[in-house]
Nucleic acid binder design. Structure first.
Lengths: 338, 338
DNA sequence: GAAAATATCCAAAGCGCTTTGGATACTTCA
DNA sequence: TGAAGTATCCAAAGCGCTTTGGATATTTTC
């Protein structure tokens, strides 16, 4: 059933039916109801291709996910995507997800814009200097960044958590417990968030007059094994850290495993604080969390970003930015230095 | 730059340019080259909406992900999606991902079909009786199932692993080590894969004349915490199991944590075997795996399903099915019963 | 060398929608 | 009561592509 058939069935013009369904005022309420009912009864839905061609808006947002050598999708995406997706549904918009090799990323953006696949993009995992933003800005395509990019020259839409402030607080929290030898298991510091976390960490250390120990600072892709291996190694040092600050729950889980393997107890022999994106899939969101963490919901971030995206499509000139403060949740993994 | 502009720039008709770019033979090789170069130079890409409208093929495959009360995307999806996405790229096709509330699932399929958003669907996580398959079959939309559905009445495209056989082997493997009290930490048994795994488990137990202990059989959403809690409980039983069979690496990780917490050693006091979808994100793919597992790559399954999907779109009548045998990888988590 | 076949190109229709620019009937107001 | 406004609807153009059904030039065949 298409518009033509529906309108001839109703004895109306296509114009009127289209307007009735799209809520234009030039249609009497009586006909509108008649049209809506007939549409529902016959299961009529406008062809998105046709509508896209006519309006220039295709009702889809692009999410491009580059795959590195590990060929995997970062699990931090999952919960975020869930939030985004649910929010899009309210707007009748859907996600066009494109997975590509890392070196094809910019080309993929270009292609999707040129072929008119999407009305805008959501950028995830921004780097300190991120070429995607320049590209999209020169192409004049609306986008919203989840995160921030320190190197950006022009204003742009973003939603970020206060990574720097969060790690300042976490570091201070550990110092207040008497810790001075604190390890940092950071994410890749080409990523803006990791860059900012390191900055926050160092600021507080220096403010407290604590010498920085570079051999306790790590920067890698965040995984459980990364946490396990690093923690195992540094616990075996002659002068091991008494506290560890992790960039992700995944890393922290590895750290906890290493601590247990070493016959130690977290919160007693070693304190652990982590940034927790609060993803659901580990099922770790307990009432009293095991691990002391800075917590911010990726799901909620997703829904918010989706709304910002819709606004950006409607008004490509308006810029909106938001910074969320993560919550510090004290768990059982932190305690006074022995 | 659109077709009209490009062709008038070249002094050719739209017909010729379109044919040149789409590889039709009615164009001289000389003009074809000229056209291709000009297209590249001007960054011309055909509008997908227009092409979709003209051809009826929109170059997109739908992946609908229902969100349960936990509001999360199953992490088992991630690696599979990565494989699918990379394979689609070769066909110039992309994923339209729709996230919806669980009770909206069928309606979402219907809408996407009616509005002509996609050329087909990939179904994940099929149930024993899955209404999606009936729906799509009556609507005449091509689809490929990752997994199988025991209750299906008509033939359909699928790629599955041999869940029943795999759990038969795993169970036998444990029995050969002298274990008789084996716990099953299964996934939700409304899911076809879990149903089949339970079946395999029971077949071998009964074949070996080992009485089934229902208090050692569990069926839940697979998460780390599920594994931890169940293992903690059953290890405290007066007559605890000497072996555990898990449906997912996530569950197994929880089990391992519980074993460690109980002061026991996996592979010595308790044996653990798990189904391992070999997802990259945990970084657990070590040369010598910690945990004995039945392994099958979700990523490779994804690429294969993508190819089957493309074939299904090209030939909606041809049916293809594939069943993969997972590999049994012996790790350090299994040993003779003490 | 004329007829038939082939190679190469083009004009125009059509995909299903939105939207512009009226047309028609019905009210309202002085 | 006639003019002006308002409510309601419609015909047709246009979005950018593919594809049908020729047209024209170039070879091939007899």
């Amino acid at each position: 059933m298409n518009l033509k058939e529906l309108s001839s069935y109703l004895g109306l013009s296509q114009t009127t039916v289209s307007r009735a369904l799209n809520g234009f005022p030039e249609v009497s309420e009586k006909t509108r109801q008649r049209v809506i009912e007939a549409a529902k009864a016959h299961g009529y839905m406008p062809s998105q291709s046709a509508r896209g061609l006519a309006t220039g808006r295709v009702g889809a947002i692009g999410h491009i996910i580059p795959l590195g050598k590990h060929q995997m999708i970062n699990p931090h995406f999952s919960d975020f995507m869930a939030g985004v997706g649910i929010a899009y549904a309210d707007f009748g918009v859907d996600i066009v997800m494109k997975i590509c090799a890392q070196d094809q990323e910019l080309a993929t953006y270009r292609k999707m814009v040129k072929s008119n696949r999407v009305d805008g993009f959501v950028l995830q995992g921004p780097l300190v200097d991120d070429p995607r933003m320049d590209l999209l800005q020169t192409m004049g395509v609306p986008f919203v960044v989840h995160g921030r990019s320190a190197g950006a020259t022009q204003p742009y839409n973003f939603l970020d958590v206060d990574n720097e402030g969060a790690f300042e607080r976490a570091t201070q929290f550990l110092i207040d417990f008497g810790h001075r030898d604190i390890a940092l298991l950071n994410g890749l510091e080409t990523m803006d968030f990791a860059h900012k976390r390191r900055k926050g960490f160092l600021t507080v250390l220096q403010g407290a007059g604590i010498p920085v120990r570079p051999e306790l600072m790590f920067s890698q892709d965040m995984s459980e094994v990364y946490g396990y291996e690093v923690a195992t190694n540094i616990l075996a040092l002659p002068n091991p850290p008494s506290a560890m600050l992790c960039a992700s729950k995944l890393v922290a889980l590895g750290v906890m495993r290493a601590i247990a393997d070493a016959g130690l107890v977290a919160g007693k022999h070693v304190s652990v604080v982590t940034f927790d994106d609060d993803f659901g899939f580990l099922g770790t969101h307990a009432a009293v969390p095991q691990i002391t963490c800075l917590r911010s919901s990726l799901y909620r971030a997703g829904t918010r970003v989706a709304h910002m995206m819709m606004a950006a499509v409607d008004d490509p000139l308006g810029i909106s930015t938001e910074i969320w403060e993560p919550e510090l949740v004290v768990g059982k993994s932190t305690g006074m230095k022995l």
